[in-house]
Simulated scan of single mutants.
Amino acid sequence: MKRRTFIKLTSLSPIIINSYMMAKDIDEKIWTTILEVQNILFPKTSKMPSAKEFGSVSYLKQNIDHQTFDKDDLELILNGAKIFAETFPEFFKASKSDKLEIVKQANESEYGNSWLNILVYYGIEAMLSDPIYGGNKFQSGWMALKHKAGMPRPKKKYGAKIDL
């Protein structure tokens, strides 16, 4: 029954994204939902940091305000989080194994699958990007994978000119 509810709500609960919406204007409950789900998608292991540890949400918060961030992706991320929280309110108090089952349930719908895919996409980006962009805290993603960063590393975000 929950999967059907999730599908129905996808058409009824759009968040209107306007060109002036900033990360600071987004309800903290949405960020909490995204982080909780990403922590299931990217759990802490003996070798890998969790989504919280590598800064998945701080990465999103810092980058969604930039003009190059895809507004369709932003709409899917925010609407999906709102709908997920409304459809599965028990998720937030569930055990880790129950949370995984709820995420699997959400993944059964086309919309839920799209939402989870976009969270994985931006989670990987946050884990592996240069820390200047707000993710990969303490280079934890790089260290877990024994990755050596390319040189030169960015000194400013998004190709901004550096004054010499």
Rank of each mutant, 00 (worst) to 15 (best):
Y133P: 06
T68Y: 04
I124R: 03
Y20H: 15
Q62R: 15
T5P: 05
F6R: 01
L116S: 02
Y20V: 06
S56Y: 10
L78C: 05
T68K: 12
K96H: 13
I118K: 10
L41V: 10
R3H: 13
V120H: 08
E110P: 01
T32M: 08
I17G: 04
K104V: 11
F6K: 02
K2T: 13
L116G: 00
M151C: 00
K155A: 09
L119R: 02
E101D: 12
W142F: 04
S19C: 08
I17E: 11
N18Y: 09
K99N: 02
M151Y: 11
L78Q: 02
N117H: 14
P89N: 05
F84S: 02
D27V: 01
N117E: 12
K8Q: 14
Q105L: 14
K155D: 05
T32E: 14
Y121C: 10
A51N: 11
L128T: 15
A51G: 03
M127K: 06
S46V: 07
S97H: 04
S109E: 02
D98C: 11
V57A: 02
I118E: 03
K24A: 15
G123S: 09
L164R: 10
I7K: 11
M21P: 00
M127D: 00
S129K: 00
G112S: 09
A94P: 00
G134D: 02
Y158I: 12
I34T: 05
K137Q: 15
Y111L: 14
W142R: 08
L41F: 12
T32C: 06
D98W: 07
L76R: 13
N18A: 12
K161D: 06
Y122I: 07
I64K: 02
Y122E: 03
K52H: 12
K82N: 12
L119N: 10
Q67T: 14
N63Y: 09
V103Y: 08
S11G: 15
A160K: 14
L119K: 02
I83S: 05
K44I: 08
G55E: 09
G123R: 00
F84G: 02
I16T: 10
L12A: 15
I15N: 05
I162F: 05
L78D: 03
I17F: 04
T10N: 14
L116R: 03
K161A: 14
I102V: 15
K148D: 13
L100Q: 14
K47I: 13
W142A: 08
E53N: 02
I30M: 03
S129H: 06
G135R: 04
K44C: 07
G55Y: 04
G112W: 00
D65N: 15
L164W: 07
I118L: 12
P154K: 07
N39A: 00
I17V: 14
D73L: 04
L35Y: 03
F84V: 12
E75R: 15
S11I: 12
F6N: 01
S109R: 07
A126R: 01
K157M: 07
V37G: 03
K24W: 08
S114V: 05
V57L: 08
I132L: 11
G134T: 03
M127W: 00
T68G: 03
S50G: 09
K71N: 12
W115V: 03
G112K: 01
L145P: 14
F69A: 01
Y121A: 13
A94G: 01
D130T: 09
M143Y: 06
V103W: 07
I118P: 02
I7R: 13
Q67M: 13
K148N: 05
G55R: 01
T68N: 11
P14W: 08
A106P: 08
I132C: 08
L100F: 12
D163L: 12
